[in-house]
Design a protein around this nucleic acid. Structure first.
Lengths: 218, 218
DNA sequence: GCTCATAACTAAACACTGTTCATTTAGTGA
DNA sequence: TCACTAAATGAACAGTGTTTAGTTATGAGC
């Protein structure tokens, strides 16, 4: 039994080696430029070997995609410590965009790429991807209960907020944010989040001091 | 000279035939599944012939992309007749999303696809793509002047609003709007636009009657 | 130690892809 | 009719994802 276990572990290690190598190459050259042969060459195996561990190239992409969803979920959870719902939502959006901009290749894989296999995509997202969305909905609900938002359909508000951060992240990733200097992106994102959230209550975030002050955005 | 002109016209007609055929095939099966050979077969020429009219596959994509920018620009201009700046901006966003959802393949080409040739992408967008953005900025400026928005950096507000509609459109195009029934998408978009714009002035759009009434969103 | 089945691996091929180029075909001007 | 030019193409090249038949290594049972 010990040998069988070792074999299984070796198999699993090979899978993660392939995944890790693939992701490194993706980060280096973009996933549309990476071939099975590239990956095989890097790990010094024949291309055919990869097909012993993954059904096809898509399965590699989808596995990494799923990895991305898990990373994002973990990253987002860290923003749930704040007490005030609106502040929490603000931080939530900030964390989302931060993840996207720091892991553009993952984000591309998760939300921007055309999924080759629709079925697989959906089942994949359902598990952990939906969990992220539920997290958002909870947050939105609490903001609504606290009177920060007008009372309306939660799905609409949640989807709207998601759209907002996704739009910001994906436009920047596709290089449409060139009107902002590289180093100014972060503060732009801050102001954009304020523009979305603060005006709903006509208050202004003072994020430096982590408190709410009255006034209008400048 | 007449013959030369005819030749030129034939050349141009062939180009548009290729473009039209390519776009039809894209609409049918998605552009990632269409090959030069597919296009050639459809117009009953050899694959090599296409290279007499286009440098390569990317040039076809970029030409169609540019076509998309022109279509969008024309489409958006129709929404500029409204007098009230905020109403105009609302209509602007509505038109943008409508274009994206009615021409998802164009929209994909324009804003979602990974551009293979960065340089070409930029020059392409500069002409007409930037014109669209300038249109938006003008609109934003007028809203700000009219007191609908807090006074802040116009680029930030413009980019934020663009991000919003882009986020909505691109998430729906990628099938992330499944929490809304197909026939409910349009009204969801309406509510989402209200959520973004109306709360800034604490007024509510009554789009049925095309006028602004006081109150809070429901 | 010696078989032998099983697992791991790979070389070579297949059917594709975008692209190029020598060659053929068609059409015009003299 | 003949020569010249432009248009079109067949065949090839290098590359892709993927499959399969065949080879090598490894552990189990004697």
């Amino acid at each position: 039994m010990s040998i069988k276990q070792r074999k299984e572990q070796e198999k699993s290690e090979m899978r993660t080696l392939i995944l890790k190598t693939a992701m490194n190459l993706f980060l280096e050259k973009g996933f549309e430029n990476i071939t099975i042969r590239n990956i095989a060459e890097k790990i010094e195996y024949s291309p055919a070997t990869i097909y012993l561990y993954f059904k096809n190239k898509d399965e590699i992409l989808f596995t990494l995609r799923r990895e991305g969803f898990e990373k994002l979920y973990e990253h987002q959870k860290t923003s749930l410590k704040l007490d005030d719902p609106l502040m929490r939502l603000h931080k939530h959006g900030e964390a989302y965009i931060q993840f996207a901009l720091e892991n553009p290749e993952y984000y591309d894989l998760m939300f921007m790429m055309r999924g080759p296999v629709k079925e697989m995509q959906e089942t994949n997202d359902c598990d952990i991807g939906l969990a992220s969305y539920e997290l958002l909905k909870t947050n939105v609900k609490e903001c609504m209960d606290a009177g920060h938002f007008p009372v309306m359909n939660i799905d609409i508000v949640a989807f709207s907020l998601w759209s907002y951060v996704h739009g910001i992240a994906s436009l920047i990733i596709r290089g449409r944010g060139i009107m902002f200097p590289e180093e100014g992106i972060k503060s732009m994102v801050e102001e954009a989040l304020n523009f979305m959230l603060v005006s709903k209550t006509e208050k202004k975030w003072d994020l430096e001091n982590k408190q709410i002050i009255s006034g209008v955005n400048v």
